[in-house]
Design a protein around this nucleic acid. Structure first.
Lengths: 108, 108
DNA sequence: GGATATGAGTAGACTGGCTACATGAAGGCG
DNA sequence: CGCCTTCATGTAGCCAGTCTACTCATATCC
C-alpha cells in the first residue's frame, strides 16, 4: 500500500481506535496493526506527529503516566474528537462512493 | 471532501475513465465529475499535471488533434497503463479493507 | 554484555494536489 | 462591434502530511 494513499484518512482511523478506550501511542500503533490485519504498520515518525497534531487541534487529550518504569502518554477522545470521528466516518462513505463510482469495480 | 483524501487515489481514477475510450483532458474532467455524481470537480492545476505525469510514467499516450478550431490532446491507455489500472483497482480493495477494518463502520 | 521489546520523540525530505494565473479560440447576445 | 461564457491547455509556486533516519531511555531475556 502506497504511503500517499493514507493522506487524509489517517486521522479518523487514529480517532477510531481510541473511541472505546484511551490508549498510549505505542498501543495505538499496535491496535492499528491488528485492526488492519497487519497492513497498517505506521512508522513512529508518522504516528507521533499525528497524535500531537490531533491534540493541538483539540480532538485528543493526553495524560502522562508511568507503567513498569516506562513513561506513557495516554490519549483519549475529546467531545470535539467524537464529532470529528463521526464526520470522518461520513466522509469516508462519500469518498468510497466517489472512488467506486469512477473505478466501477466489477464492471467492464 | 478534503483535498488530501485524493492523494494516491487519483491516478487509477484517471486511468479508469480512459479505459474504454480515449478522451482529452477536458472530457476526462467531465467524465470524473459525472461518474462521481458531481463530487469530483478537479481544478485544471490538478488534472493536467497529473496527465503529464501519467504519460511520462508510460501509462498514457497522447495525440494532438483539432476539433472545431480548438486543439485537443487526447489520451489513451498504454498496455502498461492497463496493468497499472488493474493493480490500482486491487490496491483500492486492500485499502478499503484496511480503512474499514480500523473504522469498523456500523459497529460500536 | 548484547539483543529485543517497549515507549516517545524530532529534523528534514519528498511529493502530489492545490490556488492563482496565463493563453487562446468559438459562439451567443445586446 | 464588444463582452461574456464555454471549451481547452498549461505553468509556477505553496502547502501539508507521510516518510526516512535518527536520538534517547528503560525493562527483560539470553
Amino acid at each position: 500500500m502506497k504511503a500517499d494513499a493514507l493522506r487524509g484518512h489517517l486521522d479518523p482511523m487514529i480517532l477510531a481506535v481510541v473511541e472505546t478506550e484511551p490508549l498510549h501511542g505505542y498501543a495505538i500503533m499496535e491496535a492499528l496493526l491488528e485492526r488492519s490485519g497487519g497492513e497498517l504498520d505506521l512508522p513512529t515518525g508518522t504516528l507521533y506527529p499525528a497524535l500531537r497534531r490531533l491534540e493541538r487541534a483539540g480532538y485528543l487529550a493526553s495524560e502522562w503516566s508511568t507503567v513498569g518504569g516506562r513513561k506513557r502518554r495516554t490519549y483519549q477522545l475529546t467531545s470535539a474528537g467524537t464529532k470529528m470521528l463521526a464526520s470522518g466516518k461520513q466522509e469516508w462513505v462519500t469518498f468510497r462512493a466517489v472512488v467506486e463510482g469512477v473505478l466501477r469495480p466489477g464492471q467492464a
